[in-house]
Write a protein that binds this DNA or RNA. Structure first.
Length: 295
DNA sequence: GGTAGACCTGGACGC
DNA sequence: GCGTCCAGGTCTACC
């Protein structure tokens, strides 16, 4: 079965996929040669499907093996639209970026959309697994979580959907430490999964919340394992770009760009992008750091 | 509000 | 092959 979805222009699937590393984390995969994004998902009906997403016309097509019921079609369309931010409008950011040489490429290259997972739960777990580790460590931990706890794809049992909060809630800390090698992050992921599974934490409601960004930030910071860096990243995924996700790399880049390599702190990173106000997160994200491979 | 130390893993390095 | 050191954010305890 094939679904077709249109996107608000400008749109480029490759730009969304390459916006950050999520496409390299299971159950995503990306065929760079053919620009095909795939994602294995557990639908509400209990069926596991592989979404094969291609750019086509002014949007994307989604191919799924076999037929889909009408509720399943609606669910797939809504999830892909959310994951790729097909409807998001970046025109204000593009107008601001036109006069900045380090950002004037963003509209032409259709940058602005950041790939995200279908649930905020999955985005939060993955973000926690990016903290205090290397990128290869994150890939390894996510792969272990998915393969060990996720529901397998019927047509390819080697591939699995991302585990639901309920699936993770029934495990224990020792299992997360030994089977997925999450280390000290294990209790954070377990506590989050149990809170969401029990209904004590309605994480998904944040996706449509109209609360001020500061309020959303406070709610994210209340999650164990989510600090300033993780909260800023998650706000970006929620479409709120008011904060820069300051990690050691951000500090290094800002030091090199504005301070001649001298040591700087969080305040200097914030100050460097202050003029971009509600777009400062995106301005940092898509700043032309082309010299960085030399740093 | 600011700071120090612990948390855990894997990679780099020296022997 | 083994041991040591280090990088990576967040939490807790303490001032």
């Amino acid at each position: 079965m094939r679904l077709t979805l249109s996107a608000r222009p400008p749109f480029a699937l490759r730009a969304v996929v390459q916006s950050h590393g999520w496409a390299r984390l299971a159950p995503f995969s990306f065929d760079a040669d053919h620009a095909v994004l795939t994602y294995v998902d557990l639908l509400r009906t209990g069926r596991v499907v592989e979404m094969v997403i291609n750019e086509a016309g002014d949007g994307v097509t989604i191919e799924i093996e076999g037929g889909l019921s009408e509720p399943e079609r609606s669910e797939v369309a809504a999830k892909v639209s959310w994951m790729l931010r097909l409807e998001q409008d970046f025109s204000v950011f593009y107008d601001l970026a036109k006069d900045e040489p380090k950002l004037n490429q963003v509209e032409e290259q259709a940058q602005g959309r950041l790939l995200r997972c279908p649930t905020l739960f999955e985005d939060v777990v993955k973000t926690i697994l990016t903290t205090n580790t290397t990128w290869t460590g994150t890939i390894r931990m996510v792969e272990a979580l998915v393969s060990r706890f996720g529901t397998p794809l019927h047509t390819d049992p080697e591939r699995h959907a991302f585990p639901t909060p309920g699936q993770l809630a029934t495990t224990d800390e020792d299992m997360l430490r030994s089977a997925a090698r999450l280390g000290y992050r294990a209790p954070y992921v377990l506590e989050l999964a149990r809170a969401v599974a029990s209904g004590a934490l309605d994480l998904e409601s944040l996706k449509t919340s109209e609360s001020p960004t500061q309020d959303l930030r406070k709610r994210l910071l209340a999650i164990k394992g989510v600090g300033g860096y993780a909260a800023a990243n998650l706000l970006m995924l929620l479409g709120r770009h008011d904060f820069v996700a300051i990690d050691s790399w951000a500090v290094k880049l800002v030091s090199h760009e504005w301070y001649g390599g001298a040591p700087v702190g969080r305040a200097e990173v914030e100050a460097a992008f202050e003029r971009w106000r509600q777009w400062k997160g995106l301005a940092y994200w898509f700043w032309d750091w082309s010299y960085r491979d030399q740093t």
